[in-house]
Simulated scan of single mutants.
Amino acid sequence: MKDIEEGFFSMPINLPGTALNRAIKAAKLISKELMATIRQRRIDLQGHDLSSRKDFMSTMLLAKDENGQAFCDEDVASHLAGLLLASFSTMHSTITSIMKYLAELPDVYDSVFREQNEILDVKPKGDHLTWEDIQKMKYSWSVASEVLRISTPGFGGFREAITDFTYEGFTVPKGSKIFWTFDATHKNPKYFPDPEKFEPSRFQGNGPAPYAFVPFGGGPRMCPGNEYARVVMLVFMHNVVTKFRWEKLIPGENMIYYPAPRPARGLPVTLHPNKP
């Protein structure tokens, strides 16, 4: 996935050793593995009760389009590859940034720790987290949201103007291609006072103004994986915070942005197990 990610932002030169060439080879390898898995899944689904199969691949194999036609294996593989790629860089970037800020801000860590342990204390030992538990993680989600605001894992997105409009004295005609950026609002002091300060309370109460916080986009083209991402981040925070404290080994480590923000040297940390 890393090779494909880097190929998206490379020069369009397909020669051996180039980023684009590595990306094409990686994409072919992933497609081959997905096609083999899809063929086996089709065999597994034959003659079985399908009502219990809730995973994404099985759902795609059983789905029909608007004309009542099933998706071919290539279409299913394409959707799965897109899902894997879209979740790869964004999730590992955000989780790494969560680790970074919790290491740098012990008061924020302590508040997350208290909230997660309150959830843990009322559960039978060994029980898995439930959807109801996730809904209780309000402060933890405020922390994750502030991480997404400051270190959004991306630049923005392309859209097309559906009508003529005027913005800041410039007329944008219908059909124009537009690139919107996260930082246009995420770092705008009009919506987020002192925007470089890490302040989870921005997301408590009524939260920010509509469409000021858009790490998943907005409207009908909003990222379909937003709830999946929220669950992954909160489950990760629960497990890591209830088990460990940690400290950064490189206090002043720089962040680089290609394409998603990440620590220049990988954020090495020392883990300290929490006492039971």
Rank of each mutant, 00 (worst) to 15 (best):
P124D: 14
M11Y: 10
G68M: 05
K177H: 02
K190Y: 09
E6I: 11
I13Y: 02
D183K: 13
E115H: 06
P259C: 07
M255G: 01
S201Q: 13
H238D: 03
P189K: 10
F182G: 04
P259R: 08
G126L: 09
I178R: 02
R149Q: 10
F9D: 03
M99N: 07
S58D: 10
P251Q: 10
K28M: 11
F179C: 08
V269K: 03
V147Y: 07
Y167L: 15
F155V: 10
Q69T: 06
P276A: 12
V231L: 12
K64N: 13
A77K: 08
N226P: 01
A19C: 00
T242N: 12
L234M: 07
F244D: 03
R230G: 00
L50K: 13
E6Y: 14
A77E: 01
G154T: 07
K54H: 12
L62Q: 15
F213M: 07
E199A: 04
I256F: 02
N188D: 15
P189W: 04
A264N: 07
M237W: 05
Y228G: 02
Y109R: 09
E196C: 06
T242L: 04
S52Y: 03
D133L: 05
P220E: 09
V235W: 02
W180I: 15
G47Y: 08
N21A: 11
F71A: 10
Y167E: 01
T18W: 05
M222Y: 03
G205A: 04
A161E: 06
A229Q: 02
Q116C: 13
H79V: 14
S176M: 03
D55P: 00
F170N: 11
K243W: 01
A70S: 12
